[in-house]
């Protein structure tokens, strides 16, 4: 199962890199969500998979009886998921604000900090700032 999930992680990473490299902020966010999911799955797979019970200690026992799933990567992922969510929301809001200020989601035209020498929206890529 690890090998199949490894390939799935690869697929998710490839998809997220492609989305992140697109010049669209919205696609960027999608890529980010995919990337954090991919990393979580990578951690989980790295901790090995067992078709066994969750890492709980049964009533009446003092240690787990028989093999249980690896608890350590689970603990790592659990916080990673919540942090990923908080940061994702922050980036959402940041991009939303940037869109309101600049009027585009095309990163090539978000250049307040580093103005290009001569970049004008080309005919192949119409940018229509929307009124909010």
């Amino acid at each position: 199962m690890e090998s199949v999930l490894a390939i799935l992680v690869g697929v998710m990473v490839a998809g997220s890199v492609y989305l992140i490299l697109g010049r669209n902020l919205i696609r960027f966010i999608f890529g980010l969500v995919l990337a954090s999911n991919a990393v979580n799955l990578l951690l989980f797979t790295g901790g090995r998979l067992t078709h066994s019970r969750p890492p709980l200690i049964a009533e009446g026992a003092s240690t787990p009886v028989g093999p249980v799933a690896n608890a350590l990567p689970q603990a790592l992922m659990l916080t990673a998921i919540v942090i990923g969510f908080a940061l994702l929301v922050f980036i959402f809001v940041l991009f939303y604000r940037a869109y309101q200020e600049i009027g585009t989601v095309d990163t090539e035209f978000m250049r307040l900090a580093e103005p290009p020498d001569a970049v004008t929206p080309g005919p192949t890529c119409p940018i229509e700032p929307k009124e909010v």
Partner: peptide
């Protein structure tokens, strides 16, 4: 936010190179 543009921004060759890099990244991780 605005809908995704029906056409991709950026040149087609650039996106093809991006795609190849993305595939390479996925392969490396896998």
């Amino acid at each position: 936010l605005p809908d995704l543009q029906s056409r991709e921004c950026g040149d087609r060759p650039v996106r093809i190179v991006d795609g190849l890099l993305a595939l390479a990244a996925g392969t490396v991780v896998a």
